[in-house]
Amino acid sequence: MRIGLVSDVHSNSPALESVFEELERLGVDRTLCAGDLLGYNAFPNKTLNQLIENNVTAIRGNHDEAIVTETPSNFNIPAKRAVDWTRRQLSDEEKQYLKDLPNKRRMSIDGKDVVVAHGSPTNPVNQYVFEEDVTPSALDHWFSSKPDIVVLGHIHRQFTKSINDVKVVNPGSVGQPRDGDSRSGFAVWNTEEGSIDLHRTEYNIDKAARRTRAVLPRELGDRLSEGL
């Protein structure tokens, strides 16, 4: 099987559309999302519809959590404004969809044990896990019984790392990359070969940025072309 891995879509429907086109071209069988479906950008309703229509198996990220609970005091001003604005755009049904998402999943896919968390497996909503944080001792802390693959999000940066037969991957951000590359990030896991390939794809940044600037702080639209 080929499994699409995405994260941090952040209400960027034009970016998600391009990623889905690439995933279809690459022949994926299903897609997992490591959280932060919404926030930051200006297409929350369409983004949710795209994820649902494509049968994406998702979890809740910290921005999703903020939208359906309350805006955290530690969010910066643009993030707070985006969360508050997004909350007002959602129907009760859409809010319930976010509320019903778990903050972590552990499942079997093609005989492989898979964990999906936005932050870390022990702090699934809020902890930042960078590539250098993935160590044998971290895996020992996270798991008493180790899975085959761990899918993380939250940092908006891509990496894949293998430690003692455990593969840890962050597919990067679909909707707001922060590694200097403005293209959407995603990954494809081949369960038979055991390979994980990181991908980037271009999308209509001008369309996303123009709409975001119209309703949200200008810097949120501006940063899309900078990949920061």
Rank of each mutant, 00 (worst) to 15 (best):
Gly4Leu: 05
Ser7Met: 08
His10Pro: 05
Asn12Gln: 07
Ala15Trp: 07
Leu16Tyr: 03
Leu26Gly: 05
Thr31Ile: 13
Cys33Tyr: 00
Asp36Ala: 09
Asp36Thr: 09
Leu38Arg: 00
Gly39Thr: 08
Ala42Met: 10
Phe43Lys: 05
Pro44Phe: 12
Asn45Tyr: 09
Thr47Glu: 04
Gln50Pro: 04
Ile52Gln: 10
Val56Trp: 15
Thr57Val: 15
Thr57Arg: 14
Thr57Phe: 08
Ile59Cys: 11
Asn62Glu: 06
Glu65Leu: 11
Glu65Ser: 14
Glu70Phe: 13
Glu70Gln: 09
Ser73Glu: 14
Asn76Leu: 00
Ile77Arg: 15
Pro78Thr: 09
Arg81Gly: 03
Ala82His: 12
Asp84Gln: 11
Arg87Thr: 12
Arg87Gly: 08
Arg88Asp: 14
Arg88Val: 07
Ser91Glu: 05
Ser91Asn: 11
Glu93Trp: 10
Glu93Val: 10
Gln96Glu: 14
Gln96Leu: 14
Gln96Cys: 11
Tyr97His: 14
Leu98Arg: 06
Lys99Leu: 15
Lys99Phe: 14
Asp100Thr: 05
Pro102Leu: 11
Arg106Lys: 13
Arg106Asp: 05
Arg106Asn: 04
Met107Ile: 15
Met107Asp: 06
Ser108Asp: 13
Asp110Leu: 01
Asp110Val: 13
Lys112Gln: 01
Val116Glu: 03
His118Gln: 08
Pro124Ser: 05
Pro124Phe: 05
Asn126Pro: 01
Tyr128Gly: 00
Glu132Gln: 11
Asp133Ser: 15
Thr135Asp: 14
Pro136Glu: 09
Leu139Gly: 01
His141Arg: 15
Trp142Asn: 06
Ser145Met: 14
Ser145Ala: 07
Pro147Leu: 05
Asp148Tyr: 03
Ile149Arg: 03
His154Ser: 12
His156Glu: 04
Ser162Gln: 13
Val166Ser: 00
Arg178Trp: 03
Asp179Ile: 04
Asp179Tyr: 12
Ser182Pro: 13
Ser182Met: 12
Ser182Thr: 03
Phe186Lys: 00
Thr191Glu: 02
Glu193Gly: 15
Ile196Ser: 01
Ile196Pro: 01
Arg200Ile: 11
Arg200Phe: 15
Arg200Met: 12
Glu202Phe: 01
Tyr203Gln: 09
Tyr203Ala: 06
Ala208Tyr: 01
Arg213Ala: 02
Arg213Tyr: 03
Ala214Leu: 12
Val215Trp: 01
Arg218His: 14
Gly221Phe: 02
Arg223Lys: 12
Leu224Gln: 03
Leu224Asn: 07
Leu228Cys: 12
Leu228Phe: 13
